[in-house]
Design a protein around this nucleic acid. Sequence first.
DNA 1: CTTATGACTATGA
DNA 2: TTCATAGCCATAA
Length: 107
Amino acid sequence: MANEGFFQRVYDIVRQVPVGRVVSYGQVAALVGEPRKARFVGFAMHSSPGMAGGVPCHRVVFKDGSLAPGFAFGGPDVQHEMLLEEGVLFRDDGRVDMAASQWEPLA
DNA sequence: CTTATGACTATGA
DNA sequence: TTCATAGCCATAA
């Protein structure tokens, strides 16, 4: 493991995110051991096989809890709805309540 | 080989 | 609080 491409490692982490939880791009990057590649985490999601590949890219959000504008499954509203279905808590601003729904890796 | 691009984040106004 | 800019570095052409 860990010898695969950077993207492959990102998919591996995102795949471990449980339902009802979200992670920030920077957090995923940190979990793969490279916190400076936060942008490529998002880029990896763009190239990700999606749910079909076991990569719930809709659970990956900004550190702020905002969703990706314009690159979600058809609109941030769709991603927002999907997360609601998974039990993710949202604030009135339309942002994810990171304090309650951010995934904390259990080593 | 070089250049351009990007689902980010931190910082400053 | 929101908005704009800089730095970040892998991937594609």
